[in-house]
């Protein structure tokens, strides 16, 4: 079992608690408007499970809040992620999970770009191309087996960095 893993013993980062959003007065008041920001996108994807380990993308430092750029006015999102090792063959799958999560969780008006962070993967360009090609993503999701894997990784996404689901 151990041999089949691409990275069997990755470094584990403990999520910093400071990155939890604190509920503000404005958020609870009907008369204010809350724009979609990087933290909100990060909350959506931080607890996606890694396909290899029972750890989240945040714990493996694959996603970081600082690597997300959002513009609510122009409806654009850029998510950059860092594979745990440069030859990680799971990078596309991880990117696909992020893509699907955002497809399902963001309003249609957003244009979402998902990229591997510069210089963190051997075949950066190929991965980026695959992830941002609408048709290839759609085709991938036609594959029932692949969809099942993606859904499994997304099962924990609702935790948003918490240990247990909030009520």
């Amino acid at each position: 079992m151990a041999q089949t893993l691409i990275n069997a013993n990755p470094t584990v980062y403990s999520p910093s608690k400071t990155s939890q959003r604190i509920l503000t007065f404005e958020e609870q008041d009907d008369s204010f408007e809350d724009p979609i920001d990087a933290q909100e996108i990060f909350d959506l994807i931080r607890s996606i499970s890694d396909p290899e380990h029972p750890l989240t993308l945040e714990q493996l430092n694959v996603t970081q809040c600082e690597h997300i750029t959002v513009s609510d006015e122009t409806s654009r999102v850029l998510v950059e992620f860092t594979p745990t090792i440069p030859h990680c063959s799971m990078a596309t799958l991880i990117g696909l999970c992020i893509r699907v999560r955002l497809l399902r969780s963001l309003p249609d008006r957003f244009k979402v770009d998902i990229r591997v962070r510069n210089g963190t993967h051997q075949s950066e360009n190929a991965v980026n191309k695959q992830l941002n090609d609408k048709e290839r993503v759609a085709a991938a999701l036609e594959n029932d087996h692949l969809l099942e894997v993606v859904n499994q990784c997304l099962a924990t996404a609702g935790l948003r960095g918490q240990d247990t689901p909030s009520p």
């Binding site: 979609i36 399902r104 969780s105 859904n151």
Partner: peptide, 25 residues
């Protein structure tokens, strides 16, 4: 539900995301 994803309140969006992902399942 995708309309609720664009709600102007964050807390509502959050609930909408959770709700929608359950319906996807």
């Amino acid at each position: 539900l995708s309309l609720c994803l664009d709600d102007n309140k964050r807390l509502v969006r959050r609930q909408a995301v959770d709700c929608r992902s359950k319906w996807y399942g």
